[in-house]
Amino acid sequence: MDPSDIDDMFMEETAAMDMRHAIEREEMRLLAVARSEYRSIRNFASACRACGQDLRWRGFDLQVPPDYCTPECARSAPKTVQTLDPWEIAECPF
């Protein structure tokens, strides 16, 4: 949301400032949740899927999927093919 939109929505300056603070707090909370999940996935995976390098001591980087060590490993990893669930009921072709 653009800060000028907040000023347009709230005529009172204190209400606009309260809304800005609420948005900033929510962004910080979501970033903390993202970091925690990223760390959790890295600890669970423990090694890069492409090269096998240890992931547990690597830093937080939203540009790199959590189960890879670098963007290059993520790009070079084989693409997984979606397989159909054998228990899934398909429509009858007749």
Rank of each mutant, 00 (worst) to 15 (best):
I89T: 09
D61S: 09
F10Q: 02
D8G: 10
Q53I: 13
A15H: 09
M1G: 14
P71E: 13
D5G: 09
M9H: 12
R58G: 01
Y38R: 05
L55I: 02
D85I: 00
R39Q: 08
P3S: 07
E12F: 10
Y68L: 04
T80N: 12
A16M: 00
S76Q: 14
K79N: 06
L62N: 03
E12N: 13
A34D: 08
C73P: 01
T83R: 12
L31H: 07
D54L: 05
P71Q: 14
A22K: 09
A32E: 12
A22H: 09
M28E: 13
A50H: 14
E88Y: 11
E72V: 04
G52A: 01
C48Y: 04
R49Q: 15
R56Y: 01
E26C: 02
P66Q: 02
L84A: 12
F94W: 15
A32V: 08
C48G: 01
D61A: 09
M11V: 14
S76T: 07
P86Y: 05
P78L: 07
R58P: 00
P93T: 06
Q53D: 12
A45D: 03
W57H: 15
Q63C: 12
E27P: 05
A74T: 02
L30R: 10
R25M: 11
A15I: 06
A22L: 10
C92P: 11
R25H: 13
T70D: 04
D85S: 04
A77Y: 00
T83C: 09
R39K: 10
Q82G: 13
S46E: 14
D7G: 06
S40W: 00
P71Y: 05
P86W: 01
C69Y: 04
N43I: 07
D85P: 01
V64A: 02
S76W: 02
L84I: 12
Q53H: 11
L62R: 09
F10G: 00
E88A: 10
S76E: 08
D85V: 06
Y68H: 15
D61R: 07
R20S: 01
G52S: 03
Q63W: 09
E91K: 13
R42D: 01
D8T: 09
I41S: 06
I23P: 02
C51M: 02
L55Q: 02
H21G: 14
D7H: 08
A15M: 13
R42N: 00
A15W: 10
R56H: 04
C73K: 01
T80G: 15
L55A: 05
D5F: 09
L84M: 10
P86L: 02
R49L: 15
C92A: 12
C51A: 04
G59Q: 00
V81N: 06
Q82C: 13
E88R: 14
R35W: 00
I6W: 05
D2K: 11
Y68M: 06
G52V: 04
P65K: 06
Y68V: 00
D8F: 10
